[in-house]
Simulated assay, not measured.
Amino acid sequence: MPLTAPIRVFQVATGNVGSEMIKRIGAHRDLELIGVHCYSPEKVGRDVGELAGGDAIGVIATGSVDEMIAAAPDVVTFHGVFPDEDLYVQVLEAGIDIVTTADFITGHHRNAHHRHRSGRPITEVIDDACRKGGSTFYGTGMNPGLAQILGIVHTADVAEIENITVTESVDVSCHHSVETWKEVGYGRPVDDPTIPDSLYKYTAVFEDSVRLMADAFDLELDEVAFSYELGACTKDVDLGWYQMPKGSLGANYIKYQGMVAGVPRVETHLEWQMTPHTDPAWDIQGCYITHIKGDPNIYSKHMIFPKPGVRLDDPSDFAAIGMTVTGLPALNAIRSVVAAPPGIVTSADLPLRAFAGRFAT
């Protein structure tokens, strides 16, 4: 595909990430938005620019997968909260590539915890659809996704790695996804016995992030261990879009540790707070931290700041930053995914240019 030819994109979902990506696709020099699929019937038939909170752009939302396939896009971008494997199979078998930010990095945890209705491993179902259609499937995001790529790149000048830990230390109240936080357990009493299983089930994609890094290092893991600490709200918290009573889950520290001979070698940590009013509370740094023990030692912070004019006291502006850094790793990788061979690809398979942004034109 010539570099001058825009890649025709059909997007799925207009939620938090999806709405922001509609705006970003419009400004992306590689891409042309030709359609959007919505799950909510009340959105179908409306201009997607208006659905995203902006002006009309002449693209009308559909609720039909058949219409999406008939439009013959080069790629479908999927930004739903949870994956839709049935849609994936239809699109991939039609020869259309998919790039998603929904809970997929290597597929390991999808196989373990979310078996396909056929009983087959989900990665097998997706890969078969890719082979049938000659299409490519790729999952990414900020974390898991880019955060682990940053960690891998930071080892390029390390002679002997003893341990690598990538930590997300963030206030997650900017991510206005009620469904996500209900599933994770935020707002439930901190002593609710269902919380540990919920935390594991709905963060298990971070196990995949550990496996992705280990794969890049050619490191064979014995297991990926999961552990957690919970922070209970010290008062009733009302965020406007989410409520957490006193004593409910309002923060957590989770570790996914890739173990070799009983020693943690590759780790992803999640230091999250929905509110600072918890016990215990953590020193949230608002960044992504790579810490490498080895020869030499490396410590790096990936810090994200708004451009001038963005008001951090405006909840929508603040939330848009998180949605941008979640979705842009997918958009910027599209040209490399379209050029990749059929099948499931991970970030370890793509060239460096897949992780490059674009200069403004």
Rank of each mutant, 00 (worst) to 15 (best):
I7L: 14
I7V: 15
I7H: 07
R8K: 15
Q11L: 11
V12D: 04
N16T: 08
E20N: 13
E20I: 09
R24M: 10
I25S: 08
E32S: 15
P41T: 02
E42V: 13
G45M: 11
R46F: 08
V48S: 02
L51D: 08
A52W: 02
V59R: 11
V59G: 07
A61S: 12
M68Y: 07
V75M: 02
F78E: 14
D84R: 14
V89M: 12
Q90M: 06
Q90H: 13
E93F: 06
G95Q: 09
G95F: 09
I96V: 14
D97F: 08
D97Y: 10
D97R: 12
I98F: 10
N111H: 09
A112K: 14
H113C: 06
H114L: 13
H116T: 07
R117S: 12
P121I: 10
I122V: 15
I126H: 11
D127W: 07
K132D: 14
K132Q: 13
T136I: 08
Q148G: 01
E160W: 03
N163V: 12
V166N: 04
D171L: 08
E183G: 06
E183V: 07
E183T: 12
G185T: 06
P193D: 11
T194L: 08
D197C: 00
L199K: 01
A204S: 15
V205C: 08
V205T: 13
D208L: 00
S209Y: 00
L212E: 11
D222M: 01
V224M: 07
V224R: 09
L230F: 09
T234M: 07
V237H: 01
K246R: 14
I254Y: 06
K255N: 05
Q257L: 07
P264K: 05
T268D: 01
L270C: 00
Q273C: 08
T275S: 09
T278R: 00
I289L: 14
I289S: 01
K301Y: 01
G309T: 05
D314F: 00
T324L: 08
A330R: 03
L331M: 09
A333G: 10
I334K: 06
V338K: 11
A340F: 07
L352P: 02
L352K: 13
R353D: 14
F359C: 08
